[in-house]
Design a protein around this nucleic acid. Structure first.
Lengths: 342, 342
DNA sequence: AACAATTATGTAATCGATTACACGAAAATA
DNA sequence: TATTTTCGTGTAATCGATTACATAATTGTT
């Protein structure tokens, strides 16, 4: 029962052609009103459902868009995806998810796979920008498939991006720490080949400069986005001749690790030491000692990326609009860095 | 440049037929070795990529599978999806994500949309089981598309599911609280029309019974999975004649709210009051007062659901294997309920 | 009434790949 | 050498929908 019903079945039943059925269902104005009604009624009664695959083959558009992220089980990326899905669903697009696990090879595979699957666009957060081999990206562009970067982007001509102002995020946070009286501010930096981390670092540096605080190379520690990494980094910092009195971490997880380590050493937060993170992961506000962090409005970022995609799709192929959307970061000041009062 | 290369282009170049090209590329044994090599080499040199849409139309299989969850930006669901994606990717399947936001209507829409998109299977966590209208589900089954429930399931003949033993989760947690000396254990329950919440409740009840503790209806509070809901529930509980001395919450977020409220009232945890949650959300172990919680092994659940799907797809259509996989919950005992020592 | 203009529908190609069937050529057998 | 197998390839239909073009049916015009 319930074998697939096609427009040919409807046509046969009504003694007309599949072409007429197709036109009737697509509101082609050349169809007699009575025929249209009859076809629509019959289609409904036969429980007809358009075969999207046939449509896709004919039109060359799959109505699927691909999203590539390092991993999906992080609040930030999951929220971005949520935003994308919510924005694109009403337009009839389905979202296909791929993860890179920070592997450039996986990223390339995913790109090729998505193109093979004939997606109508690719929204992604880049995994690795050091590689000089951009074949996979070029392949996407050559195929004229809209490509949009979010959060972690890469400079490629004709590619739009939606990011936050990481420089400003770093600047604001550092300035806040300075305002709280900290004068020896360390920085946990992520992989500086990624712009987001580079910019957070630069914002940090600029804030120091603007407030007459000397930049100290030793205070910058490369750190993975993990609790353990934060602990180890604190250990390292406290061995310095002049240990710092604050940390601006580009990762909430590392910030958490730092706090745990400082507590174990009975260093009082925020009195003796202030800590601020980045990303506004849910746990930062849940802690008893809530953690100051920079919100990246992931939901908004996802929606924005989706909107940029919608603008680019359907545009004349020849014109390449390169759009750079930069969202404002929002510093959430919490207990881990509030000496004044809370 | 780089116009789509088809097997016809290759055929033309080599002065053979598209059929031969197709067979050569598909390792059909009837093709002369020399021809095969030539075709493969030429295909590579022309940068040929198989059009998956054409293949999908011909074969009726899209190589996409749909995943429906209430929301993606929750650690649990995101992790399940991660598991699904990792397990299915090597088999050439792409994962399409849909969210219901706990709306039955959205759930139905998603089901129809995925079927329209010709997915090869649907893995989902049910949103609402109260509804008697199963048209959307029946539509899936009629179309012979494998349907697999994970976590939140629903009894439908021929539908497999992967869940955890929620009863046992509830039982273990409650027993643990009893072992810690609690005798008045309250329960934050989710929507009991969902089996997961029903079973956690039943496990809780059974543990009380088995340990000679009277079940008190007043101690069971229906609670949304939100921090605020937990606070309100505590407020309510403390007004009882005999307030409880412990809470087993079916939500980590509500458990967190409870802890916050108890702290505000200067009730000491775990000495005066023990709290345990459910889901093992990342924040539960990050808190200074870490929260006892039940782990649902979401990654494993996702992988398992994917494996069940792989078993069912390609099976003779007539045989309906109904597989019920039940994973073991794992209680993570933490500070919020550890009176003994930690 | 004869012809033009309009409207509705049919015919057939197309999207790109797969595959049952047919057929010619080469190899094996008698 | 004649005949049967085997092998390799070509022919053409198919998946389901869309659409340019052709044609039939209807209406309008003089």
């Amino acid at each position: 029962m319930s074998e697939k019903v096609t427009i040919y079945d409807i046509a046969e039943k009504l003694n007309i052609t599949a072409a007429t059925v197709s036109r009737a269902l697509n509101n082609n104005p050349k169809i007699k009103e009575s025929t249209r009604e009859l076809v629509i009624k019959t289609a409904a009664s036969m429980n007809y459902k358009q075969n999207k695959l046939a449509l896709a083959l004919k039109s060359g558009r799959s109505n699927n868009i691909g999203v590539i992220v390092p991993r999906i089980d992080s609040n930030f990326f999951a929220s971005v995806i949520r935003g994308i899905e919510e924005e694109l669903q009403p337009h009839g697009y389905q979202v296909i998810i791929c993860q890179t696990h920070e592997s450039k090879q996986r990223e390339n595979e995913n790109l090729y796979t998505l193109i093979d699957a004939q997606v109508d666009g690719i929204l992604m957060s880049v995994t690795d920008v050091t590689s000089e081999n951009d074949d996979a990206f070029n392949n996407v562009l050559q195929k004229n498939v809209p490509l949009i970067f979010f959060d972690r982007s890469k400079h490629i001509d004709g590619v739009s991006s939606v990011t936050i102002n990481d420089f400003r995020g770093g600047y604001l946070t550092t300035k806040h720490l300075i305002n709280e009286g900290c004068r020896h501010i360390a920085h946990f930096s992520g992989d500086q080949s990624l712009e987001i981390f580079k910019n957070r670092f630069l914002g940090y540096k600029q804030a120091l400069l603007d407030h007459g605080i000397e930049f100290n190379e030793e205070y910058v520690i490369p750190v993975k986005s993990m609790v353990e990494a934060g602990k180890a980094a604190v250990d390292k910092l406290l061995q310095l001749e002049t240990p710092p009195d604050a940390i601006f971490s580009s990762s909430d997880f590392a910030a958490l690790g730092a706090i745990q380590e400082l507590k174990e050493r009975n260093i009082s937060i925020p009195n003796e030491f202030c800590v601020a993170g980045f990303s506004n992961e849910p746990f930062t506000k849940f802690m008893e000692l809530s953690i100051t962090s920079v919100d990246q409005s992931p939901l908004e970022m996802g929606k924005m990326a989706a909107r940029v995609f919608l603008e680019q799709v359907d545009k004349t192929d020849t014109i390449k609009i390169e759009k750079k959307v930069v969202l404002a970061p929002e510093l959430h000041i919490r207990k881990s860095s509030s000496r004044t009062n809370f």
